[in-house]
């Protein structure tokens, strides 16, 4: 069996006395598409943020392609990683945020070439060529010179996806990427993610409230509750016949809300 792309091993996260994630074990295979669902406060977003190193962890290890992310091996022991190590491993991961977080003082194109030029050291021509390919894929090539403030939420999120992809990550994290959008704009963003899944061999982790999309798109669904994975499995099975009482309650509530 090939090495998993990402693995969480006994990962614990606390805020003060509140345990957000309790001894999490989760393994994600190469190219796998995992949807993380659950009620708010269940710790699902924290999973993505820890993997992106936006949150520290209080226990356990996260590995990316077998290499520890927040730790490094020294003399057979794991010690907390230094910045250089974190940046090396982190380069494999990209993230798209709920609130887009585009750089407001840069155009769509500038947003997409900034990190490739400064971090990867690409030439401007190369970075622009790569960015234009991606902007084209997300249907934003004709808005390359627009500032974020001149774009709709859906358009901003599509640029944000292109921006993340421009770093050529192996794992893409989507953190409630449609939650801040007006309902009529959700479709265009999901369409881009669908296309991405079909055309690229990316590992994807998404926290989402779009149950329909999770069911259709994901290879696996993880249902989080109170900092633990309550149930996981194939979407078809999970959505039609959830085993856990909490999952059933959650799905019923979500379906009732429409």
């Amino acid at each position: 069996m090939t090495e998993p792309m990402v693995s969480f091993e006994n990962v614990t996260k606390r805020y003060g006395t509140l345990t957000v994630l309790d001894n999490l074990n989760l393994t994600i295979g190469r190219g796998e598409k995992v949807a993380i669902i659950g009620p708010s406060g269940s710790g699902k977003t924290t999973v993505l943020r820890m993997l992106m190193t936006l949150e520290t962890i209080d226990g356990g290890v996260i590995r990316v392609e077998g290499e520890p992310l927040t730790h490094m091996e020294r003399g057979g022991k794991l010690v907390p990683a230094d910045q250089a190590h974190i940046r090396k491993v982190r380069a494999k991961i990209g993230m798209v945020f709920q609130s887009f977080n585009l750089f407001p003082h840069m155009t769509a194109l500038q947003n997409c070439i900034e990190a490739p030029m400064k971090v990867l050291g690409l030439s401007r021509e190369k970075a622009e060529a790569r960015a234009m390919d991606l902007l084209d894929m997300v249907g934003m090539a004709n808005r390359r010179d627009y500032y974020p403030s001149q774009l709709s939420g859906g358009q901003q999120q599509r640029v944000a996806i292109a921006r993340a992809l421009a770093m050529r990550p192996k794992v893409m994290l989507f953190d409630e990427v449609t939650s801040a959008l007006d309902p009529e704009l959700v479709g265009e963003v999901l369409q881009v993610i669908r296309k991405l899944g079909a055309e690229h061999d990316l590992t994807m982790l998404m926290v989402t409230h779009q149950m329909g999309f999770a069911k259709e798109f994901a290879d696996r669904v993880c249902f989080f509750h109170s900092g633990r994975i309550c149930e996981e499995g194939e979407p078809q099975a999970f959505f039609t016949n959830p085993q856990n009482e909490r999952s059933r309650q959650f799905l019923r509530a979500v379906l009732e809300a429409g």
Partner: peptide, 24 residues
């Protein structure tokens, strides 16, 4: 979120400060 975006793009703190945070 602007800082977080620079982390997700794997920029260094100095790069983030100079190119993203200070201009804003």
């Amino acid at each position: 979120g602007q800082w977080e975006a620079t982390v997700a793009l794997n920029m260094s703190r100095a790069q983030a400060l100079r190119r993203i945070i200070l201009p804003q």
